[in-house]
Design a protein around this nucleic acid. Structure first.
Lengths: 242, 242
DNA sequence: TCGGAAAAAATTGTATACAGAAAATCCTAA
DNA sequence: TTAGGATTTTCTGTATACAATTTTTTCCGA
């Protein structure tokens, strides 16, 4: 089961995790040689990985050469979350319009049951399970419409860690009534799946957008109440919007 | 004014234009050495350019190594056009909600006048002018909301040449009442700008989506009426959806 | 003539060398 | 002491060499 990793894969995984660790979140240029040595590979595949991370938006090019960790304002993150909701909403609408293959629907129902289980776990909510199952549901949503284009774009948007639905989940436990928020989110999941199953495109789209707006309001609350969140955001420099 | 191009820039521009020329639209693997020689550069920057084009979606990786020109079904293109409309619609809505800086609005008004001029040119519609001004308008739309995230995503979606609003414009002259279609599109432009100026977010979004749907229906008409279009699609293998 | 194995050729993935440019350091002069 | 400039150092961008695969060709046997 363990596929042999190419040097490029090593570079990509290693570099991404280093960037997300937050260690290099200053505005300094990232040294190719330093990272290549640290990851035990040559500069060539490391450079490829840097290019990739620039394309993902995690890094940004410097005019004079090289690149640095990207910085985002809370407004940027908010936009990314909302846009993700819009695109997922489109996926939901298309899925409803076109109909979804039975097996996928069955998978979705099962995943939603798993989320219910995580919410009702003895000893409080099982966060890890919730996060995983939630990510699974959103991935299924992206596959419902059977559109490679749509799927690709949604996947791309999930790459900005802060825009993905499960980002911050651990931070979010600081939110009052957070558990209620999760329960509410799950009710939205069921409503979305219901709308899609019933071929109600407009409703499926609206519900999915609304679902993203919940994540958005949680994020907004966090950044307003806890400005120091910036320090805990995994790896990306979060810059105060003036 | 002529900025010195890096080898990578040469590779990117050259390779993209070669791919779009359609010469390599078979399913064969693109040889790195061949292209490097043809463009007069070494394999390193060419390889970077290939990576970039893969990220853009113009090329796709081959499991055993290397990459080839990507293929799209008409359904894929249709999805891309629709999705572009959705994201542009979001930009329009956000612009209306947030308000747009005066200078940008003035630019937009001017561009729309240029389009009117292109439509009323003596000796028939000035297509080149229309295409250029139209692209300009859509670029302004992407900048209206003052959101780097949104702008980036819209730009990215314009990279798939077939999804961009002006793609096919020359082909589309084969459409009956095509000139009327352009006039209608321009009326939509004005309506969109009007909605944004009046801060009517929902209307701005709906109108922008509708605008994309016009392009979509033109594309659909073309592929249905002229299956041989595939041969004339610049550079991308268009595969019949079964 | 056809199928398949073996050898040959070509191609990719990776490492590394090198030149030119940017950045850091240090020295000098006000 | 500090500003400015020259020098040194470091770094990126690019070319190229090399090894491991993959693909093609060749050749033999059925």
């Amino acid at each position: 089961m363990s596929e042999r990793l190419s040097q490029f894969d090593k570079a990509l995984l290693g570099l991404r995790s280093l960037v997300l660790s937050g260690e290099f979140t200053g505005q300094r240029r990232l040294s190719e040689v330093a990272f290549a040595e640290r990851l035990g590979i040559s500069r060539t595949p490391l450079r490829q990985a840097m290019d990739r991370l620039v394309a993902e938006g995690l890094l940004e090019r410097i005019e004079t050469g090289g690149c640095r960790v990207a910085t985002f304002t809370p407004d940027d993150i908010a936009d990314a979350i909302e846009l993700r909701g819009v695109v997922e909403g489109t996926a939901a609408r298309m899925a409803a319009e076109r109909g979804v293959a039975e097996p996928l629907l069955a998978d979705a129902a099962e995943v939603l049951d798993r989320i219910d289980g995580a919410l009702r776990a003895s000893g409080g909510v099982d966060f890890d399970e919730y996060i995983q199952a939630n990510a699974w549901f959103h991935d299924l949503l992206a596959r419902f419409a059977d559109s490679p284009i749509l799927r690709r774009e949604i996947e791309r948007m999930s790459l900005l860690p802060l825009a993905s639905p499960s980002a911050f989940l651990s931070e979010q436990s600081a939110i009052p009534d957070f558990q209620d928020s999760l329960t509410y989110a799950q009710r939205q999941h069921r409503a979305i799946l219901d709308a899609i199953t019933n071929r109600e495109g407009a409703r499926a789209e609206a519900l999915t957008r609304e679902h993203a707006r919940l994540a958005l309001s949680n994020f907004t609350y966090l950044t307003e109440q806890q400005p120091m969140l910036a320090k805990r955001v995994p790896g990306l420099a979060l810059v105060a919007s003036e």
